[in-house]
């Protein structure tokens, strides 16, 4: 999935001449933590976060200094070396950028103009959609040998049942290096026929199951 499909395009911004107080009020009102700073042509020139403000604000005991601080223009505290994303970046790249730079949001810039913003929450939401948990379904986990053709064989078994596969995730098995875990989300309330068919083909179903404990 691409950034342009996930980003918010109605971006709330300020100008570098606006005061720090403006930014504080706006963040509070809109419940946001990142304010891109743009010029008249919508070119991105900086960003101010709630963290920038908190770390720059003088002690609460110096009220005069604090007032003076709040009246300063945003250009005095904004970060100008902004990490940005492009509308054609992939969700995985953006997730890696958040992780690497320990930041919570990325302005999306196309030809130097601000066209959107994407936050960690947007990315998380996209990952939730990728796992299919936003549609009614049952999840099963299968431990499989790490070799070609396994996934195809499993899906071949499922094909006999008129059941939709909502998502497929494959991740490394932390317990056994030579195997992988396949997580399937199935569009059914009754996965038993599929589980039984997989068991008949010697597949190890990890869940639903509990460490050697069987229900029913």
């Amino acid at each position: 999935m691409l950034v342009e499909e996930m980003m918010v395009t109605d971006v709330i911004t300020l100008k570098k001449e606006d005061s720090i107080k403006n930014a504080v009020d706006l963040m509070k009102e809109k419940k946001i933590r990142h304010l891109p700073i743009v010029d008249r042509t919508k070119t991105l020139i900086g960003i101010v976060t709630d963290r920038d403000i908190r770390s720059a604000v003088p002690s609460i005991f110096c009220i005069d200094k604090q007032k003076e601080f709040l009246n300063k223009p945003l250009e005095t505290i904004m970060t100008t070396d902004v990490i940005t994303a492009h509308p054609l970046d992939f969700v995985e790249e953006v997730a890696a950028t958040f992780y690497k730079h320990r930041i919570g949001s990325l302005p999306v810039v196309k030809k130097e103009k601000l066209v959107g913003i994407i936050t960690q929450t947007d990315v998380l939401k996209t990952f939730v959609e990728l796992t299919g948990t936003n549609q009614p379904g049952t999840q099963i986990e299968i431990r499989v040998p790490n070799k070609p053709g396994t996934l195809a064989d499993i899906l071949q078994q499922i094909r006999h049942f008129h059941t939709n596969v909502l998502s497929v995730l494959i991740y490394p098995d932390k317990m056994k290096a030579q195997s992988k875990i396949i997580v399937l989300r199935l569009g059914t309330i009754n996965p038993n026929p599929i589980i039984n068919a997989l068991k008949e083909h010697q597949y190890e179903i990890l869940w639903p199951n509990l460490s050697g404990y069987h229900n029913g």
Partner: peptide
């Protein structure tokens, strides 16, 4: 819990 059980929500 919907972790594994239908409908997941």
């Amino acid at each position: 819990t919907g972790r594994y059980l239908f409908p997941g929500t």
